[in-house]
Design a protein around this nucleic acid. Structure first.
Lengths: 205, 205
DNA sequence: AATAAGATTGACCGATCGACCAGTCAGCAG
DNA sequence: CTGCTGACTGGTCGATCGGTCAATCTTATT
């Protein structure tokens, strides 16, 4: 009973391959990752990977789909149970920030994905999540705590820019502007300043 | 006289290789680019590339250095002759936006560079440019048109996020929020909304 | 004309790439 | 027991990878 039976053994092997592949893909990207490396890391043979996933491209797709689906589901779930009002609005933003802070692999995966020229039709997860986000902004506009002379879509995109790009490029920016990267509360400092800009702007009030 | 002499012929060959390499590197990244492809595109032999640049890595470095140096010099030049005042401050921002809009290769090059784990010590161009930017913000704070309760460094970074990430990811975001990508003034629409946020924030005034 | 230096070439190297194949083995249904 | 299916392996394929080398061509200098 403790021993996994046939099917679960197979699916756990599949997962092991997916895990190993994700680690290496995230680190080195698609092209610089070889099936041999993945096989070695997953402790299986190359042939087995082909048996389960068909090709390197399909493996890459499955790795991305798995992680993206998990991520978008989590975000949708958290956004769904969000309350109304300016404070909740603010909390949603802070929440996304910390989710990404705790999942740097996710950030790199998105980066690789953005550079991918292959225009793959993705599932509707992100579409749904985005529409929930748009609804949240619209709600804020109707309730009066979000200014109405702005396109909610661009507002959402601007917010994504402020969050994603920080985690994508902070290791470079801290060198430019002279912040020590291992400052314990570096992310929080950025978050505070970024929130000031996002909510109130850089002009004095 | 019309014919380039020996040295300029060599340097023009070098440039041809750099140009070809940049095109392919920008499109496919370092790992997915082969010396053969570059050689073919530059109409030279692989051996000649090794003769001029030594290795693929060094060629990659030179490609990045050339473009980055050109970019940062241009930005420094334009920032140096910028005037004082809120309007000039605004112009600098709009200026950077359009420079990147007109240089999508630069955006991709930065993206690949950000994913690169190789921590190469880069030249001081970007450091100088950043300090000029910081000075501009400080100036605004002293003259009173930039709020003082904010760290200029994080303000600069936030601004970079709003510009760079838009060009890195807009092809994905427009799919999410349902904007047609070939809208003639898509970039301008984003710019207007982004500027509203950056200067005044999303809260009603 | 002789020479040196640099630009350029084609042939070639060992290594590694993704993929494929025939075959083994275990488990399950009949 | 028989037959089938799917997990899994070792070996190998042709292609391509980055890189090297000796030889040749081009040009400037002497």
């Amino acid at each position: 009973m403790d021993q996994p039976e046939k099917h679960s053994a197979a699916s756990s092997t599949r997962d092991a391959i997916l895990d190993a592949a994700e680690n290496i893909f995230v680190e080195r990207g698609f092209s610089d990752t070889s099936m041999s490396k993945i096989a070695g890391a997953a402790r299986v043979t190359k042939s087995l990977i082909h048996h389960h996933f068909g090709s390197k491209e399909q493996l890459w797709m499955e790795v991305k789909n798995r992680r993206f689906h998990e991520y978008f589901s989590l975000q949708k779930e958290q956004l769904a149970k969000a309350d109304t009002g300016i404070e909740s609005f603010r909390s949603c933003i802070i929440n996304l920030f910390y989710v990404l802070k705790n999942n740097p692999e996710m950030v790199r995966l998105i980066s690789w994905h953005l550079l991918d020229r292959a225009q793959t039709e993705r599932h509707g997860d992100e579409k749904e999540l985005t529409e929930m986000g748009l609804a949240k902004v619209l709600e804020g506009q109707q309730l009066g705590y979000v200014r109405k002379d702005m396109d909610p879509r661009f507002m959402l995109i601007s917010f994504f820019c402020l969050v994603f790009h920080w985690f994508m490029a902070k290791h470079e920016y801290v060198k430019w502007v002279g912040i020590s990267e291992d400052s314990t509360n570096l992310d929080d400092e950025y978050l505070n300043n970024m929130l000031k800009i996002f909510f109130q702007g850089v002009l004095p009030r």
